[in-house]
Design a protein around this nucleic acid. Structure first.
Lengths: 134, 134
DNA sequence: ATATGTGCATTACTGTAGTGATGCACGTGG
DNA sequence: CCACGTGCATCACTACAGTAATGCACATAT
């Protein structure tokens, strides 16, 4: 169990809650493939100390990530990246339905900004392009 | 000033704040063209009474909508739908940049759900199709 | 068994979002 | 001018998110 040398960084005064910043960064690492299933994450204590925040803050973030199926917690051992393939329990349609409200919020904002359909889709594709490093 | 007969509906126990529900519904009405520039909205008192909430809750919602450039308040008269064309102050690129974070959040969630690029774009297009009634 | 590493449960403090009650200021119509 | 309809400012209350301090439970290595 060598130090994975994961570099987390937070800005406590960015308005975004600390635990949310942790969640987003772990998610990004997993989605992009830099963290693979079975990989260990920094222990709650280590990470809390290095970021100078309370352990519970990290713990809550890890807990949320476990509920989301991203991590698996193993008491006495540590947090580990979960298998990514299990969640195919839900069909594509169901997952799309789950995603829909989030997309809707964003798209309506785009319409409100008076952007055309192609202009909105261009933003979507640009973001997809950035994150298909897998 | 006839009754515009606008039908707002809220579910106080839906988790979504009341003022946010008002904002979203007004936005939807304006974006879809059912409310046109110059149209009057229900007065704060009337709407508050019909929805059985406090005036201030409606007032806050309207205030936010004014900041967003959707409505114009006229004291002693009421709230009126603002002109939609003014905001072309910002270039397409700027408006796309403003939209980007929202889209990004949604798209990353889609990737996390293990949806393919076309599957995500399909959701976007479906929503765009629903809202181009203009 | 014991020491030391894990994560967890409990409890508490604090800030802020959300909502509300009340009285005031502005505009319009008589 | 006066009455009535607008929206607004102020203050206050409540619930909950976010963070933290502390002690406990489990797993592993010696």
């Amino acid at each position: 169990m060598q130090s994975s040398e994961l570099s987390f960084s937070i800005s406590p005064s960015s308005g975004v809650p600390i635990y949310r910043q942790i969640i987003d960064q772990v998610n990004a690492l997993v989605v992009s493939g830099r963290l693979k299933p079975g990989d260990a994450l920094p222990s709650i204590r280590k990470l809390a100390e290095s970021l100078e925040v309370n352990m519970m803050t990290i713990s809550k973030a890890y807990a949320r990530l476990e509920v989301d199926g991203v991590l698996t917690r193993v008491r006495g051992v540590g947090m580990v990246v979960a298998e990514p393939d299990i969640p195919t329990a839900a069909s594509v349609k169901e997952r799309q339905a789950e995603l829909r409200p989030l997309i809707e919020q964003a798209v309506l904002r785009g319409l409100q900004l008076n952007l055309s359909n192609p202009q909105i889709i261009a933003v979507v594709e640009s973001i997809l392009r950035e994150n298909r490093n897998e």
